[in-house]
Nucleic acid binder design. Sequence first.
DNA 1: AATTCGGGGAG
DNA 2: CTCCCAGAATT
Length: 345
Amino acid sequence: MSFSQKVLQWYQEHKRELPWRNTKDPYKIWLSEVILQQTRVVQGTPYYHKFVKAFPTVQDLANASEEKVLKLWQGLGYYSRARNLHATAKIVVTEYEGKFPDTYEGLKRLKGVGDYTASAIASISFGIPEPVVDGNVYRVLARYFGVEIPINSSQGIKYFKTLAREVMDRKNIRDYNQAIMEFGAIQCAPKKPYCLLCPLNDGCSALKENRVADLPVKLNKTKVKQRYFNYLVFLDPQMRTQLEQRKGKGIWQNLYQFPLVESEKLIDGEELRTQIQALDLENQIKSISLRNKEPVVHKLSHQHLHTRFWMVELAKDLKEGISWKQTIDFPVPVLIADFIKTFKI
DNA sequence: AATTCGGGGAG
DNA sequence: CTCCCAGAATT
């Protein structure tokens, strides 16, 4: 039996029932694929249900506000996915008569749709013989065929795409693409795969050479940058606070947060006070008190945010104050959501 | 070719 | 702690 046939047979016996497996609707396939980019199935599934319920069609998504989309996306991370999702929905509705492109090239032109996602939609929705290469596929192919080329080198990206194309089942690409990913996720797992029971253990190069743990090869560990955040949690006489939207480049674009003072290192109340003076606060400050003596360390994949929350009591009302209750309506980073959740006035 | 985008779960 | 997840866009 061929490589692809073995994978397909394993899939028939072991596949999970997932909500997007029962449709070919390109809208729902696209939605599921974007949600699952760099995201585990168990983490993404609740979001898929939320989005399908809130936006049954691409028109519903296009007609929504970006804030509503971001709010639904809150907690999933990589928020450019949500912004691009919304932008693409608008394009599909206004320029493509509500229909998704039915070619790989057409799909690839959509914002937030790269090589993997275009291949996934093309194959799953339209049966186009285009191989998907995600993290699972890299692992399965690298191990089975004993490929030592780093998967995140430009050479590796080309090599694995070509290899994936050679071994795919073009007659049944819809199932095959999902099968090899599922196989990588469940059977050929990153750590301690149970090779003894693997249907591919016969021809697996890595198993034969005892290098399962060494493949795939991956380069470049990102260095983590340390940042120091001081959030100003204003409270005016009406017990209202203030949120502002993050603009420009960097993390959490278009999400909301408390007014932020970033510093080069941990600072005390005195230093913070001088920083705030520069902001020319119109509302005079009655008091500043630190909520958390030990900074909350919020860890992103490439930066650690050492965060202090300062309660700033004001003598005068804020111009655009928000009642504490309303803060939960805004899309915010998990760091802020956790604080709002635990903070009781 | 490298870096930058989040958050969570497994080991 | 480290690694990695149905990756894409930007520099």
